[in-house]
Amino acid sequence: MAKDYQPTLSTTPVTPAVTPAPRASSTEKQRGLRPVSFILLAVGAFVFLFPFYYMFIGSLQTEPDTSVAGAFPNFENITGANYVLIDESINLFRGLVNSGIFTGGVIACTVLFGIPVGYALAQLQFRGRGAVFALLLLVQMVPFQLLLIPLYVLIVRDYGLADSYLGMILPFAINSTAVFVFRQYFLQLPASLFEAARIDGASELRILLQIAIPLVRPAIVTAILLTFIGPWNEFLWPFLVTKDTAFQPLAVSLANYISNVAATAANPFGAILAGACVLAAPAVALFIVFQRQFISTNIGSSAKG
């Protein structure tokens, strides 16, 4: 199921006696088309990657060079000073730690509470299962903008959770898409496996911990990756909740720098891009290392509903 689909014409063993002519022509066609697709993809890759390259180059420039020549590395114009400058203004380390706590809290809650509900929806028969599943599907339709004001009133004003990690984490605590991914993976495990364990007298909790979870490790990595994108990149909610810079995730402190402080810096673009590199690097690195867990079949199954 999770196998990459490949144009199989050339690999399927076709008996040579049967009509060799159409086979040859379609292989030819495919060969003829590939360069077009390839060039298209290469242009796309350039458009997608160039801004990242430019972000890095720009973060190292002493003087912002916006000419075409500035897009190429110039060893006379390289400096690390922009990183020092942005660090003096917004404390990169503090920002990274806050982003890490915010993201880590959400991932921990999602794994801790999401796996049991995903397992229950896939493998347990209990009253209300249909209702819980309907809730899971419905939740993904609720737009966050409608919740913006009431959540702000409740969390910041009523519960007094402004400038706290709890206030940041709460609205995102259990990622519903991740719950859906868990359910899909648990659904693929044969029910007979669990029946057998039950007959052997294993408790449901033990079945979950010792049989089901070890079998869905890839799902856990996929769900963690999906969950990671949300809080690490989230701007609006932590921006509303944190006014104290000691609690601001890096996305918020960098955004505040862009909108307020930038005008006063000697090389604002250099400093902004240096901060942008620090904010982007963990997410980009994570998704390159774990790219196998983020393939279309996983995403497709989670989004199809």
């Binding site: 990149n233 701007f235 996305a251 960098l254 673009f269 904010l279 994570l286």
Partner: peptide, 11 residues
Amino acid sequence: YVTASVAVVGV
């Protein structure tokens, strides 16, 4: 897609 909007807005 996986990078923070705040970061790419800078570029």
